[in-house]
Measured scan of single mutants.
Amino acid sequence: KKKREHFRQLLDETSAITLTSTWKEVKKIIKEDPRCIKFSSSDRKKQREFEEYIRD
């Protein structure tokens, strides 16, 4: 659960993310961040979390 919170925090702090951002764009920006790396090695899982984040 904590990894998820850190991942969401990373998304919060990434000012380039807007409601129209695509995962492909965002992934390029955040892929080097340790919170992104630690969250999951599964790209699909990160994408799902990102899409949920955008909906919230």
Results as ranks from 00 to 15, higher is better:
Leu19His: 06
Asp56Thr: 15
Lys24Phe: 08
Ile37Cys: 06
Glu25Ser: 04
Arg4Asp: 12
Lys2Leu: 08
Ile29Thr: 09
Leu19Gln: 13
Glu49Gln: 03
Thr22Tyr: 00
Glu52Thr: 12
His6Glu: 15
Ile29Asn: 12
Ser15Ile: 10
Arg4Thr: 07
Arg4Ser: 10
Ile54Pro: 12
Leu10Thr: 05
Thr20Gly: 11
Arg44Asn: 15
Ile30Pro: 14
Leu10Ile: 01
Ile17His: 04
Ser21Lys: 02
Ile30Gly: 01
Gln9Cys: 03
Arg4Ile: 02
Thr14Trp: 00
Lys24Trp: 15
His6Asn: 15
Leu11Ser: 03
Arg44Gly: 10
Lys31Pro: 03
Asp43Glu: 11
Glu49Ile: 07
Lys24Gly: 12
Arg55Phe: 13
Thr20Ser: 13
Phe50Cys: 07
Lys28Pro: 14
Ile54Thr: 12
Lys38Asn: 15
Asp12Glu: 13
Ile54Met: 13
Glu49Gly: 03
Lys1Ala: 05
Lys27Gly: 02
Phe7Ala: 02
Ile17Ser: 01
Ile29Trp: 12
Ser15Pro: 08
Lys45Val: 15
Thr14Cys: 13
Glu13Trp: 09
Arg55Asp: 09
Ile37Asp: 11
Glu32Phe: 07
Phe7Trp: 00
Asp43Gln: 08
Lys31Thr: 11
Lys2Phe: 13
Ser41Gln: 08
Trp23Gln: 10
Gln47His: 05
Ser15Gly: 12
Arg44Cys: 12
Val26Thr: 06
Arg44Ala: 15
Thr20Leu: 09
Asp12Tyr: 02
His6Met: 15
Ser15Glu: 13
Ala16Arg: 05
Lys45Leu: 13
Asp56Lys: 15
Asp33Ala: 13
Glu52Val: 10
Arg55Pro: 06
Arg35Trp: 00
Thr14Asn: 09
Glu32Ile: 02
Lys45Ser: 12
Thr20Cys: 08
Phe50Asn: 11
Thr22Asp: 12
Asp33Asn: 00
Gln9Asp: 10
Glu52Gln: 15
Ser42Phe: 06
Asp33Glu: 11
Tyr53Asp: 09
Lys3Leu: 11
Lys1Leu: 00
Asp12Val: 05
Glu52Ala: 15
Glu49Cys: 10
Phe50His: 06
Ser15Met: 02
Glu51Trp: 01
Ser41Arg: 14
Lys31Gly: 15
Leu10Cys: 04
Trp23Pro: 09
His6Ala: 15
Lys3Gly: 09
Lys46Gly: 05
Ile17Glu: 00
Tyr53Ile: 00
Arg4Asn: 03
Ser40Pro: 04
Ser21Gln: 03
Thr22Gly: 03
His6Leu: 15
Glu13Ala: 07
Ile30Val: 09
Cys36Gly: 05
Phe50Glu: 10
Lys3Glu: 10
Val26Asp: 07
Thr14Met: 09
Asp33Val: 13
Glu13Met: 09
Glu32Thr: 15
Asp33Cys: 05
Ile30Trp: 06
Phe39Cys: 05
Ser42Tyr: 13
Ile17Gly: 03
Pro34Lys: 07
Thr14Ile: 13
Ile37Lys: 14
Leu19Pro: 14
Ile54Arg: 13
Lys38Pro: 01
Phe50Met: 06
Arg55Glu: 06
Leu10Asn: 05
Ala16Lys: 10
Ile17Trp: 01
Glu13Lys: 03
Leu19Tyr: 08
Trp23Arg: 04
Ala16Ile: 06
Lys3Asp: 12
Ser40Thr: 07
Glu25Leu: 00
Arg55Ile: 07
Ser21Val: 00
Glu32Leu: 08
Lys2Arg: 09
Asp33Phe: 15
Ala16Asn: 11
Glu25Asp: 11
Ser21Met: 07
Lys27Ile: 04
Gln47Glu: 10
Lys1Gly: 15
Arg8Tyr: 15
Glu49Pro: 01
Pro34Asp: 15
Lys45His: 04
Lys27Met: 02
Pro34Trp: 06
Lys3Arg: 09
Gln9Arg: 05
Lys45Phe: 11
Trp23Gly: 08
Glu32Ser: 11
Tyr53Gln: 04
Thr22Cys: 05
Phe7Lys: 04
Leu11Met: 03
Lys45Glu: 15
Phe39Met: 06
Thr14Arg: 00
Ser15His: 05
Arg48Met: 14
Asp43Gly: 01
Lys46Gln: 14
Glu52Pro: 05
Thr22Glu: 11
Lys2His: 04
Asp43Cys: 01
Ser41Lys: 15
Glu49Phe: 10
Glu49Tyr: 06
Lys31Asn: 14
Thr18Trp: 00
Glu52Trp: 12
Gln47Cys: 08
Glu25Gly: 00
Leu11Ala: 02
Glu51Tyr: 08
Lys46Ile: 12
Arg55Thr: 08
Thr14Phe: 15
Lys46His: 08
Lys27Tyr: 14
Glu51Asn: 08
Arg8Leu: 06
His6Tyr: 12
Ile30Met: 01
Ala16Met: 15
Phe39Val: 03
Thr18Ala: 04
Lys38Thr: 11
Asp56Leu: 10
Leu11Tyr: 00
Ile17Cys: 08
Lys27Asp: 08
Thr18Gly: 09
Arg48Lys: 14
Glu51Pro: 03
Asp33Pro: 01
Lys31Leu: 07
Ser15Trp: 04
Ile29Met: 13
Lys24Pro: 12
Asp12Ala: 09
Lys3Cys: 02
Ile37Arg: 07
Lys31Ala: 15
Glu49Trp: 05
Arg48Asn: 13
Ile29Asp: 11
Gln47Lys: 15
Arg44Gln: 14
Lys27Arg: 12
Asp33Ile: 09
Ile17Arg: 00
Arg48Phe: 10
Asp56Val: 03
Leu11Cys: 02
Lys45Ile: 14
Glu13Gln: 04
Asp56Ile: 15
Val26Trp: 00
Phe50Ala: 08
Ala16Glu: 13
Ile37Ala: 12
Lys1Trp: 08
Cys36Tyr: 15
Lys24Asn: 13
Gln9Ser: 08
Tyr53Leu: 00
Ile54Leu: 13
Ile37Gln: 06
Phe50Ser: 10
Lys46Asp: 05
Ile29Leu: 14
